[in-house]
């Protein structure tokens, strides 16, 4: 198999928790992420599933290079990220991009959409001014925002779905090879969510773009991902091909997650009711 673009080799993240009940604080370390290995290959979609506090976002931040792992190492195209400098470091920062749950909050409210998307083109790719304008239009077009209508708008004039697309356009501007997407569609309305998912899928096919999808939505996982990793309490409890794993989950947590996901089928109501009335702990 090819070299993975991005790889975590048994990484751990320890957070200090200080207890201040004495004169000199004693520090206890807590493992937010505990010895996890992940590799992401070109054009591959890996989903990271787990509840809040499972460490999935912490792992994402380590892969982005925002948080150096306490143990283990992150590798970019086979090279340890910690040792990168100069051009190699710039390349890492350019090729590994992020899309957050609410990208609107990370857009500069005083920059027009065009300016926000142009920024990485100027900084990361150092394109000449004329080329930047043309590229911005192409990118906006790609994410389904008509350039003429949206280029000069400010973030607050856009809907959540549109802002999310701007966030994706901005991430794409750097011509990344992998995007870490932390709940990229969970703030979107259902009718828009599908559009954004289709966009991400199209980009993956067009550009061999790889994703790490951090999400708790199993529908999204099923629709887009090739592989799933299930995390709980900082540890990897289960992983495998999407269809196999979601059809016959092995770990208790994965089973619970599947059972808990609401299904648009009123027939399940009777079952829920019985469960609710019986489920009360004495």
């Amino acid at each position: 198999m090819s070299t993975p673009i991005l790889e975590a080799r048994s990484v751990s993240q320890l957070f200090p928790i200080r207890s201040r009940q004495r004169l000199f604080a004693r520090t206890v370390m807590q493992r937010a992420v505990d010895g996890i290995s992940v590799s992401i290959h070109p054009g591959e979609v890996v989903a990271l599933v787990g509840e809040s506090g499972s460490g999935k976002s912490t792992l994402g931040r380590m892969l982005l290079g925002l948080l150096p792992p306490s143990e283990g190492s992150i590798h970019f195209r086979g090279e340890p990220v910690a040792g990168l400098s100069g051009d190699a470091a710039r390349r890492f920062r350019r090729e590994v991009q992020v899309v957050f749950q609410d990208t609107g909050a990370s857009l500069n409210p005083r920059h027009t959409i065009g300016q926000s998307v142009a920024l990485p083109l100027q900084h990361n790719l150092r394109l000449p001014a004329g080329e930047v304008g043309r590229r911005v239009d192409t990118l906006l077009d790609q994410v389904g925002l008509a350039p003429a209508r949206f280029r000069e708008r400010l973030p607050h004039e856009l809907s959540g779905g549109q802002r999310q697309r701007v966030g994706i356009a901005r991430a794409l501007a750097s011509e990344p090879s992998v995007i870490i997407a932390d709940e990229p569609v969970s703030a979107l309305d259902v009718s828009v969510r599908a559009q954004v998912l289709e966009l991400l899928d199209r980009l993956r096919r067009q550009r061999q773009l790889a994703y790490l999808f951090i999400t708790h939505d199993l529908g999204v996982v099923r629709a887009l991902a090739d592989r799933v990793l299930v995390m709980q309490g900082g540890q990897l409890v289960e992983s495998g091909e999407v269809d196999a794993l979601l059809t016959s989950p092995q770990h208790a947590y994965t089973q619970r997650l599947l059972a808990a996901t609401p299904v648009p089928d009123p027939a399940r109501q009777a079952q829920r009711l019985a469960q609710a009335l019986a489920g009360r702990p004495a």
């Binding site: 201040r20 004169l23 000199f24």
Partner: peptide, 10 residues
């Protein structure tokens, strides 16, 4: 309160 003692020490 240890907190006060530590702050005074600081």
């Amino acid at each position: 309160m240890w907190f006060v003692a530590r702050r005074l020490l600081h």
